[in-house]
């Protein structure tokens, strides 16, 4: 329904309208749904063939966000740090006039590797390695690092500043175990098919978020 867009952005996500549009480097082959949200002041770069579902959200308020090739970010998933801490200083830091404090707030760089899958309502405030999947409602804490081919099952959390080695699985009540490698190639096949299907299903709207077209293309070519 076309009417859902303007009302919901004002109701649920006031931050989105309050924050400036970020400088973006978008690959021409990535798909960003019309109602996905990119916000913040640090640069956001999105690699080729990545798909952002409607209502996916990328926030670069506290550091640059880099998303690799062929990622899938589902609806209600959030990449980035929405608020620095819970002490209520959020609004002060959100505005650009931060010069009152002597030390600038620390920046957190967020990097998503290639073929990362974020399922609905996943929250990622750290970095994710190649081929990992963050399932529904899972949460990756601030500054933590997830290795390659990891799996965070639904509603599990990785605490801030933690590190997860390659082929790890977090399941149940945040228990961890290792998976034996060997299935990556098969998963990649299915993943590529899914990307292909999603590209046909989700109408992209790159122009809405493309800023600084000339410099963006140049940076994209260099990386």
């Amino acid at each position: 329904m076309s009417s859902s867009k303007p009302t919901s952005t004002s109701q649920q996500r006031p931050k989105a309208s309050a924050l400036p549009k970020p400088p973006t480097t978008l690959d021409p082959t990535c798909v960003i749904a019309d109602s996905a949200i990119l916000t913040g002041k640090y640069p956001i770069s999105i690699g080729p063939q990545t798909v952002l579902h409607p209502r996916a959200m990328i926030i670069s308020a506290y550091g640059p966000v880099t998303i690799g090739r062929g990622c899938i970010i589902s609806e209600k998933a959030v990449v980035g740090i929405a608020k620095q801490d819970d002490s209520g200083t959020k609004d002060v830091e959100m505005t650009t006039a931060v010069a009152t404090t002597s030390t600038p707030p620390p920046t957190y760089e967020i990097h998503l590797g290639d073929d990362v899958v974020l399922e609905p309502a996943a929250v990622v405030e750290g970095s994710i390695g190649l081929g990992s999947s963050i399932q529904a409602g899972a949460r990756i804490g601030k500054g933590s690092v997830v290795g390659k081919y990891c799996k965070i099952t639904p509603l599990c959390t990785l605490p801030p500043g933690d590190e997860l080695s390659d082929f790890s699985i977090i399941y149940g009540k945040n228990q961890r175990r290792q998976e034996r490698p060997g299935l990556e190639r098969l998963r990649k096949v299915v993943h590529d098919k899914e990307l292909e299907v999603l590209r046909t299903l989700i109408p992209g709207n790159l122009a809405k978020w493309q800023t600084t077209a000339a410099s963006g293309v140049g940076a994209g070519g260099a990386s």
Binding site: M1, S3, S4, T7, S8, Q11, Q12, S35, P54, R55, E75
Partner: peptide, 11 residues
């Protein structure tokens, strides 16, 4: 009854 604030895609 459909809320005006629901987010329905592909009606």
């Amino acid at each position: 009854k459909v809320s005006r604030r629901s987010q329905i895609h592909g009606t």
